[in-house]
Amino acid sequence: MYLEENEILDEIEGDRPGSTVVIQTEDEISAIGMMIGSSLTGTRSSTSTSGPGFSLMAEAIGWAGINEVPIVITLYQRSGPSTGLPTRHGQDDLLFAIHAGHGEFPKVVYASGDIEESFYDTALCFNYADVFQVPVIHMMDKFLSSSVLTCRRFDPNKVTIDRGKLLEKIEGDDYKRFALTDDGISPRSRIGLENGIFWNTGDESDEYGHISEDPVGRVKMMDKRMSRLDLIIKKIPKEEQIVSFGVHDFTIVSWGSTKGPIIDALEMLKEEGKDVGFIQFKLLHPFPTEYAKSLLQGAKTIIDIESNYTGQLGQIFKQNLGRDVDHFILKYTGRGMTCTEIYDSLKKIIENKANKREVLTHGA
């Protein structure tokens, strides 16, 4: 549905709980503000945007971070900077998404590799937001959003809903929205819930939400929020963090929509008796360092494939694993990668004829 003005949609089919409202706001700042307000009522809320719109949302992402508001932003990347190539593809915004918002607060950055994945991953992203009470940035790109293909029928039975510590009832009159808990996650009230009054500002606060600059309280609140980064790694199943398509002497690390052409290229090489591994990173922040290390123990040559100039995953990889990427296969023409050009570059790497940095230009 596409709504030009306020409208209430209360039609519910069958026994499905709740309803869905889609609202066209006047700009990206309004979109994220409305989404945060909606989430504070206990409603699952999301918005979508691309690079310049995401830039406008950065301040409000920080507000959601300090107030522990669960939101989901789908970031359809295109080539920048600025307007850049507005109708073309890119994976330029990974580092921006990880560091979006000033100050330090936990968030999840999660990437889907194809259209089928993106359906089920959207449900996962909502669960991550609710369970960990953090902003979640779901990374997509123009290659996926502009693709038309036949998928297997989506199975709703594979989708689970976990609202985390969202409260339905509160006893007593001493509710603390930001209570210090053992796991770092506070029971969450919603606007209008009896006995569940809470305060939100953009300032640091005490457990009730009242503004406070007490240094001891500040340390406790920062430790509480940031502890969720470790909790996220611990609680998200490993198969949702990284997908392994096998590890060999030559192994690819990549993320997002490069998945399809990479798999096709590996099949082409396999027909020639050449085995190349592939590790698809889905959870990009917090980074699953230890799991990645365990998977890549047997890999002698690491090859980073992505659609940006600087090899942004490669930078995160080195920062967290302390290991250099041996080769980069990069494309930043605004066109999607093809299996043919990936195949050609991988073959050169295997034959020791490649540069450290291979730049692809098919379709230019």
Rank of each mutant, 00 (worst) to 15 (best):
T47P: 05
Y309D: 05
E271A: 09
R228I: 05
L40G: 00
T340L: 13
I232W: 03
M337W: 11
H210D: 12
K224L: 04
P70K: 01
R152E: 14
L40F: 14
C339S: 14
D326G: 02
A299E: 01
A179I: 05
L95A: 06
L295T: 05
L3C: 02
H210N: 12
K235H: 14
S145Q: 07
G184M: 06
G14D: 15
C339M: 15
D92G: 08
D203K: 15
D214C: 13
E26I: 07
L295K: 07
Y120V: 01
F96T: 04
F245N: 14
K356N: 08
C125A: 05
T83M: 04
G246P: 04
Y128R: 00
F126K: 06
E358T: 10
F154T: 10
I32G: 01
I350N: 07
R153T: 10
L3Y: 13
D182S: 07
V359M: 07
Q24A: 12
G217Q: 01
E240V: 08
F105S: 06
M1S: 08
S244C: 10
K318L: 04
I36W: 07
G256R: 01
T340N: 15
E116R: 10
D214R: 11
H285K: 08
F54R: 08
V72L: 10
K348S: 12
E341R: 03
L56F: 12
H285M: 13
A97M: 12
F154H: 12
R44N: 09
D206H: 06
V216N: 15
D214M: 08
D304S: 04
G184Y: 03
Y110S: 09
G101C: 00
A123T: 02
S147Q: 12
Y76G: 09
G277R: 00
I232V: 15
I211F: 11
I305Y: 07
T122P: 13
I316A: 09
E104R: 10
E59S: 08
L313W: 02
F317W: 10
E4D: 11
R88C: 06
P261Q: 04
A364L: 13
F132N: 03
K224S: 11
I23R: 03
S145N: 10
M1D: 02
H102L: 15
F132H: 03
T25D: 03
S46P: 01
T160L: 15
R44A: 07
S254P: 02
I36N: 00
I279V: 13
I242H: 03
E204Q: 07
T87R: 00
S39T: 08
P286Y: 13
A64I: 10
G164W: 00
D27N: 07
L283Q: 05
I8N: 08
S50H: 13
E240T: 03
D203V: 15
M35A: 01
Y332G: 02
V159I: 12
S45C: 15
L75F: 06
L295V: 12
S82H: 00
D183R: 09
I232P: 14
Q241G: 08
M57W: 12
D141R: 02
T49G: 15
Q24Y: 15
H327V: 07
H138P: 14
P237V: 14
F250D: 09
S294T: 08
I8Y: 06
E13M: 14
T20Q: 15
Y332N: 00
I302R: 08
L124Q: 01
P86N: 08
R163Y: 09
